[in-house]
Design a protein around this nucleic acid. Structure first.
Lengths: 245, 245
DNA sequence: TATTATTGTCACTAAATGAGACAATAAAAA
DNA sequence: TTTTTATTGTCTCATTTAGTGACAATAATA
């Protein structure tokens, strides 16, 4: 049996995007102490979720994610890494989606396509915490930083996505010079160590860490940073420019 | 403008699968000397490609890939690892797809959905070369093993997919006990070393390799293997069962 | 001027890895 | 039966890397 003819607006709306496919982003920031991620809350629902979006028919997957993350953070150059695609059947939750549409006064017919099953491609982003004032979009009440060990309950499989992001981030820590994307251009050795400790979730030895990083020959040393504290002032470092990706 | 009403068979056919999404599999095997992958050739086209397929609406992404790889190899338990999702716009090639449909006498109308843009989720599989006699499916002339440094020209972005698979396989070599999936249950230390060498594309020192592997405490030693050669017989090993994933 | 907290660096130890040496041994050749 | 051959298992020593503590240098404070 042929299905009934769809109404025009649904066709128009759903044709803008690749169907049944979304992306979700785990946006990491570092506030000097803790590793944090951006979580948004949908209007009037109590639903917390990762910032995500859809892929337009005339843009690449990577570009779609760049566009979305740029839009939410205001940052132009963002370190992004795709880490997994989630495709379980049960991951989609049409009832929750319906709630969100209703609470935002969106037409169910027009947006029917959003209630279907979705696969999602997950990316993590590393950004300089201080440069960002995240702004909520139309659908969400708030978008704000949460420490990774104090996350609210997340909708659908977003908790699983965050866990996988963290796992891959840890695995990539050594081989991808990740620190540079979470810190300001100049930083002290202690700050870099704190980034590593926050990501790994464990304490590192100061002398060993310093020796290992310096032996990698990726840092440039600058003037000392006088913090106005009663002790020796640390050097500032930056990543050697030729090492930057 | 509303689009024209689709004919019934197209709707039925395309509704079986998630639209605009495929998977591709890089199936690795080891013949004792070289690392090889399975490549298929479509009827009468000269197009070489990775084995791939589509995701049914009522099955998970992982299950779809398992189903496809099982069908092509006849193996039931397969080590599979998702490694990347490819989503460039230019990666889709509707003309090539049309050629394939035509040469296989498939109706263009019914299979119109296949000519659209596709994103593909890529997996690699590790299988025991000796256990498999790959069989071509309806669409393909042949499916056979190619050494990774003697691949034919592949269609679309499949070369890029293979390269990425190899890169991730190398990165995972240490942390995921990959050898076990490419070897028979019992093997010599030399065989294991040859797997490592084939994957890494470099020679390793015998003594260092042996010491490192043994110190990992993942192998069980069995009787010697008498090969009928004029030298000391090597021990056979297997992976300790509690270490198997 | 002494005190305080933190930093950069060194020294010593322990562990891991590189590189070669060599005896043991299964089968073939003499 | 003895010798030869190729490969294996293991040992030793040198080199590199990492763990651990010690300590002097130094900005600001008391």
């Amino acid at each position: 049996m042929a299905e009934k003819i769809k109404n025009e607006s649904e066709i128009t709306e759903s044709k803008k995007f690749m169907p049944n496919l979304s992306y979700d982003s785990v946006i990491f920031g570092f506030n000097g102490k803790q590793l944090k991620i951006l979580i948004l809350e949908y209007h009037n629902t109590g639903f917390f979720a990762l910032p995500g979006g859809f892929v337009r028919r005339n843009e690449s997957l990577d570009d779609a994610v760049k566009r979305g993350v740029r839009h939410r953070t205001g940052l132009d150059r963002i370190y992004l890494e795709q880490f997994h695609t989630f495709g379980d059947i049960e991951r989609s939750d049409s009832e929750a989606m319906m709630r969100i549409l209703e609470e935002n006064g969106m037409d169910l017919k027009t947006n029917q396509w959003m209630l279907d099953r979705f696969l999602t491609v997950a990316y993590y982003a590393l950004i300089n915490y201080d440069e960002v004032t995240p702004r909520p979009d139309k659908l969400s009440d708030s978008i704000s930083w949460y420490s990774i060990d104090e996350l609210p309950a997340l909708m659908m499989d977003h908790k699983k996505i965050v866990e996988k992001a963290l796992q891959v981030l840890r695995e990539n820590l050594e081989k991808k010079l990740i620190g540079m994307n979470l810190l300001p251009p100049k930083f002290t050795m202690k700050q870099l160590q704190q980034v590593y400790e926050a990501i790994l979730g464990e304490n590192l030895r100061r002398t060993t860490f310093q020796r290992r990083i310096l032996s990698m020959d990726i840092l440039e040393r600058h003037d000392k940073l006088f913090q106005g504290k009663a002790h020796k002032a640390p050097y500032l470092y930056s990543f050697k420019s030729e090492k930057i990706i």
